[in-house]
Design a protein around this nucleic acid. Structure first.
Lengths: 147, 147
DNA sequence: GTAGCTGCAAACCGTTTGCACGTGA
DNA sequence: TCACGTGCAAACGGTTTGCAGCTAC
């Protein structure tokens, strides 16, 4: 089985560079469409298909991550060093959680399973500050609001 | 903000019961379509829309989980007690990882952020036994194969 | 020169939804 | 009784893809 990842004959195109630049610059986790609309302003005839194709290539090259939190669409992230995420179950905002990555976890699972573990992804769910405050004000009887 | 979760006037229908039974019985993580095709055999005029609607309701009632691993479609799981997952980056098979759930993690993030943390989800990526073996046999020069 | 890339638009496909009818409580 | 649920089919929307022309190397 040969994966695209092994290909290394990628060209340097303006479009791809702009997409990567944007992802590095902004510290949020944009969707493909957001990236498209943002770049479209300067790059008048950019197409959404190109954005998607390049996001896939950048992912294959290991320069970005694709994050899927079950919201129905992907988000992309250029912070390729390991970090974790928090999603507010109410406002859906995504925060980076800067716990030092737990390499020991991988080792634990390697021992248990014998599999080769390459990485892990850890996502916390709950209520962010703003929503927590709103909640206690407006609706004191609601206790559980997990996704 | 009122969520569907607060609703408790659900009826007991044959369809919903069958879907839950199936999810409890099978220890894999089926897709909506798999559930539909499985139940369709006995339940001749079951519709896919009904399966989706009931999966959403069961999720709202907290009886099942919806798992989204970025494969483009959701998987469902009736093991509602906390557990973790492993996905083989090559064959895409999903395994349950039976590490005791780390409640301490939530507390750590609560301290860091002040957010209310309700749960977390931990997914490991790598190569399962079978694919690991195939890989070392067929393609010794390929080192990295992370998703 | 040419393999890879782009813009465009249509196709794809998992999921949702509107509607008329059915059914559990 | 009647609000909730169902089957059916069409719509939705994020993503992919076929194609002809373009461009990095």
């Amino acid at each position: 089985m040969i994966t695209n990842k092994e290909k290394d004959t990628y060209r340097n195109t303006k479009q791809r560079q702009k997409i990567l630049d944007l992802l590095i610059k902004c510290d949020s986790h944009p969707t493909a469409d957001w990236i498209y609309r943002k770049l479209k302003k300067k790059f008048r005839n950019l197409s959404l298909g190109t954005v998607y194709r390049n996001l896939r290539i950048l992912k294959e090259k290991g320069q970005i991550w694709e994050l899927d939190f079950g919201t129905g669409f992907s988000r992309f992230d250029a912070m390729v060093h390991s970090h974790y995420h928090f999603i507010c179950s109410t406002c859906q905002k995504i925060y980076d959680i800067k716990i030092p990555p737990m390499k020991g976890l991988d080792d634990k699972v390697i021992q248990m399973t014998g599999f080769r573990i390459l990485s892990h992804r850890l996502v916390f769910f709950g209520l962010c500050d703003v929503c927590k405050l709103k909640k206690t004000k407006n609706n004191k009887n609601v206790i559980n609001h997990a996704t």
